[in-house]
Amino acid sequence: MAAGQPSHANAEASSSKHSIYEASTQYRHWRFSPEQLVDTRASLNAAAVSVIRDAFEADEARSSTTVSFLDANEESLLVKLYVGKVSQLCGHFRFPEEVEATAMSYLKRFYLKNTVMDWHPKNVMLTALFLATKTTNNPIPVDTYASHIPKTQPSDVLDLEFLVAQSLGFDFAVWHAHRALWGMSLDIQVLPELTREEVHRVYQIALNHVRASRLTDAELIFTPAQIALACLSLASPHLAVSWTRLKLAEDADMLLSAIQPIKDMVVAHGSSPDVEAVRDVDRRLKLCKNPEKVMGSRAYMKKQQEAERRADEKRKRKAAEVRRAMEEGDPFGSELARDGAMDDDDDDD
């Protein structure tokens, strides 16, 4: 990642060494520029629309012309609504903040690899939260979990679990801004002329900003420490400035200007989206959902049949191979080279 390499704050310490943050999967796999985010979402949306359009056409010719598909912005709006729902759910279950933040990260990351037209965030959100309870060591039995959520069976949660984990690339560890902010609230206590009440007041305000920042894309662009610093700066600009000066000396001003976009982002997008607008999006989503993923639809049946047929074919081929091997007198088959056809049977489903 040479191109993204920053001018280091302390060149002598990090010239030979890499920051420990760079070892995280969050840095390696889930760090984007704003332009990349827009581009990723747009291309994902375009690909999804063309696939779903084909599915509609296959289902019933010329049916796709009347459907108005969601665009990338509408998709993110829907995701954002459900990201906000995670905190409601966590309040209900009294999960720790780490679970909430992790589940939100999972949800955002999931929709950088998938589209809401394939997988509705309502379901994915439940799975992401359940997965987050496990990955942050706050496990809860799936039956208990499902019984507290209306109209949800344990299977609804578990069916998507592998899909979600796979989309996340099994990168379960997340570095959180709220932990960085906690560290800052401890570390600003070394600053002089600061009362205990002042620290607590600033911390609470900043924490609320961190919570708001989870509704934005900040964590996909900036490091958690930068987000925490921006939130601290929103709560008490002079505290943030003096703490940064203490930590980074001459590079402080550059950093303080670099976190300005986070502040703007938190202020502008740090609240739940307008419910009316989302409701409209959701209504349209019902019409443009990928028919192959809707249980009972013709496309779904067709896809199931296709999968069934393929599995059946594979089974038959395997049985034929085995029979042939048995007839030739060697139950384990003979040379490996001849049985090239056996190879594709490894991915048994």
């Binding site: 943050y21 796999h29 900036f222 420490a225 980074l248």
Partner: peptide, 29 residues
């Protein structure tokens, strides 16, 4: 200690710009 470390870890890592290193940013994407 973990909180303090995470408060300063990555402060100096500036965000990515543009579409340049798209591939290395999310190789499994």
């Amino acid at each position: 200690e973990r909180a303090l470390r995470s408060a300063v870890a990555g402060l100096e890592i500036m965000p990515l710009q543009g579409l340049s290193n798209e591939d290395s940013a999310h190789p499994n994407g």
